[in-house]
């Protein structure tokens, strides 16, 4: 009878199940395919390009992982990025006469980006938690609001950063440390911190508990609303951080900036194995998902595989396959 009770602790390291490795497998296959199709695929230049491009969506998707894990959703991140970029550029242009071109001006711009991101995330979070409106509806609404605001700020055109400021700011996207571009470094840090937070802190555990069953969480002394609010604020801040890395790339923002980023971020989260209905989050999976999405684009550009008209279809097929690889086993179990 007593031998039925397992009394020895499970080893702290367990191999992930085959299904968890699905997205990783898809990523490896894509890399092999890319290398096979084009010699330059594995060149340092191309890898840097792909990783740096992934960085914006990547940071946002890490934040999105927490929101989705706790049972929420945020459709507004793409528009939010455009709005933050617009406000950040306008603020830097406005401060230019008083502050002059210099590092303090750049830092002020970064501060503005983070502050606006925090405020936007707080707005989403409060509407969801305090007003009790469905996250889908709240963020669908704010998506439209942020998008219109940036179009309005830009007068329907493009908001451009002052040329001299841009020259100073440019290296934040284009240069790096030890040959690794800044966006890649920052993305890596965000991803690692996200993974640790999800697996090894109370915040991550609470997100999973709330997504799994918010009533149980409430009965277990978890501040359900507080944690939910925190996920939206965190996501807002990460959108701000992504924008800080994005603006120096082209130095501009317009109504089309960040178009469909929300869907890419959500797709990356789901491809990575986080449950769309919440309750289970996997940050490293999200990173893999983001890389899969940008690699598909990259490979389609590098190899003339199919008519460019069909690029969307190829992407769709790979996204669905990645998810099938991961869930295929479940239905039979």
């Amino acid at each position: 009878m007593a031998d039925q009770a397992v009394s020895r602790p499970a080893s702290s390291f367990r191999l992930p199940s085959l299904s968890a490795l699905g997205p990783l497998l898809a990523l490896i296959l894509l890399v092999a395919l890319g290398a096979f199709l084009n010699d330059n695929f594995l060149s340092q230049g191309n890898i840097t390009n792909v990783l740096a491009r992934s960085a914006f969506i990547g940071m946002i998707a890490v934040g999105m992982t927490f929101v989705i894990t706790s049972g929420g959703l945020d459709l507004s991140v793409g528009s939010m990025a455009a709005f933050i970029a617009g406000v950040m550029i306008l603020a830097m242009n406005a401060l230019l006469p008083s502050m002059g071109v210099g590092v303090p001006l750049i830092l002020a711009g970064m501060g503005v980006a983070l502050a606006v991101g925090l405020a936007a995330g707080l707005a989403n979070g409060l509407l969801v938690t305090r007003a009790g409106i469905e996250p889908f509806i709240v963020t669908l609404g704010t998506m439209g609001i942020f998008r219109s605001l940036v179009t309005w700020l830009a007068d329907g055109g493009t908001i451009s950063l002052d040329f001299a400021v841009r020259q100073l700011y440019r290296p934040v996207y284009y240069s790096g440390l030890f040959g690794i571009a800044w966006p890649i470094l920052v993305f890596a840090l965000v991803a690692i911190a996200g993974q640790v937070a999800m697996r090894h802190t109370r915040f991550g555990r609470y997100c999973e508990a709330i997504g799994s069953n918010d009533k149980v969480a409430r009965y277990s002394a978890v501040s359900v609303e507080g944690v939910r609010l925190a996920t939206y604020v965190l996501l807002g801040l990460l959108v701000g951080l992504a924008t800080i890395m994005y603006v120096p790339r082209l130095g501009s923002a317009s109504g089309s900036t960040g178009m469909l980023w929300e869907l890419e971020a959500i797709a990356a989260v789901i491809i990575g194995g986080t449950a769309l209905k919440g309750g289970y989050g996997r940050v490293w999976g999200t990173v893999v998902g983001v890389l899969i999405l940008s690699l598909i684009d990259n490979i389609l550009n590098l190899a003339d595989l199919v008519s460019p008209y069909l690029n969307g279809a190829i992407q769709g097929v790979i996204i669905v396959l990645a998810v099938v690889l991961q869930r295929g086993k479940k239905s039979s179990a």
């Binding site: 084009n38 330059n40 695929f41 060149s43 230049g45 191309n46 390009n49 491009r53 790339r249 082209l250 501009s252 317009s254 089309s256 900036t257 178009m259 684009d297 990259n298 389609l300 550009n301 590098l302 003339d304 460019p308 690029n311």
Partner: peptide, 23 residues
């Protein structure tokens, strides 16, 4: 050499051109 869709969008054109340059 190559003809891909940039969707009249700066960001998309940036990544397409990056890939042209690698290729």
């Amino acid at each position: 050499l190559d003809m891909q869709h940039g969707n009249w969008n700066r960001d998309k054109a940036f990544s397409v051109m990056q890939d042209y340059l690698s290729k």
